[in-house]
């Protein structure tokens, strides 16, 4: 049952990621990206990471995608005109991607230690929000505050970048 769900959602995720790359209309690509993020959240649920799955839906499928669609609307992007395809660029890109996939398969398939079943948890219904929060505020308190400063810097930077003219 879990294997079936894993395959359904990971195939959905990979197919919609292919849609992001190959659709010509940016709006179709963005919609495909939403589907890919939601399918990835479902894959996180099969790994018992409920908190990360919820954050994935809220931040990626919610906030980030609204930002993308807003910018597409703002720039009034149409379907791309067909340009002369650079054969060398496609060949080079395809070569790099194909090389990456074959290297990955070679490494993963040569390690028998990776073909292990999921070990059973000691508490099957883990309260993982509590665990992640405890870890975040106890062991990763300084990085957490640094992240807060980073978000502030990003906000100020965006406001500054979107001013009409810089002085």
């Amino acid at each position: 049952m879990q294997l079936v769900l894993f395959w359904i959602f990971s195939l959905l995720m990979l197919l919609s990621a292919m849609g992001v790359v190959f659709f010509r209309n940016p709006v179709s690509s963005a919609m495909s990206l939403v589907l890919s993020f939601i399918a990835l959240a479902a894959v996180f649920v099969t790994l018992d990471a409920f908190f990360i799955a919820v954050v994935q839906v809220l931040v990626y499928a919610g906030a980030v995608m609204v930002l993308f669609l807003f910018i597409i609307m703002l720039l009034d992007l149409r379907e791309e005109k067909r340009r002369r395809v650079r054969l060398s660029a496609w060949l080079g890109g395809g070569l790099v991607v194909g090389g990456f996939i074959s290297a990955l398969l070679k490494v993963v398939l040569s390690l028998p230690a990776l073909f292990v079943e999921k070990p059973a948890l000691s508490h099957p219904l883990a309260n993982d929000i509590e665990q992640v929060g405890y870890n975040l505020f106890r062991n990763f308190n300084l990085p957490f505050q640094v992240i807060g400063v980073l978000l502030l810097v990003a906000t100020v930077g965006v406001v500054l970048l979107s001013k009409k003219e810089l002085k």
Binding site: V21, V43, F100, I101, L104, L105, L114, V116
Partner: peptide, 16 residues
């Protein structure tokens, strides 16, 4: 699903 399944799916997503 084993760990290798997840790693291969993640690698394919990265490749895409």
């Amino acid at each position: 699903p084993t760990l290798a399944h997840y790693l291969i799916v993640s690698g394919l997503l990265f490749a895409l």
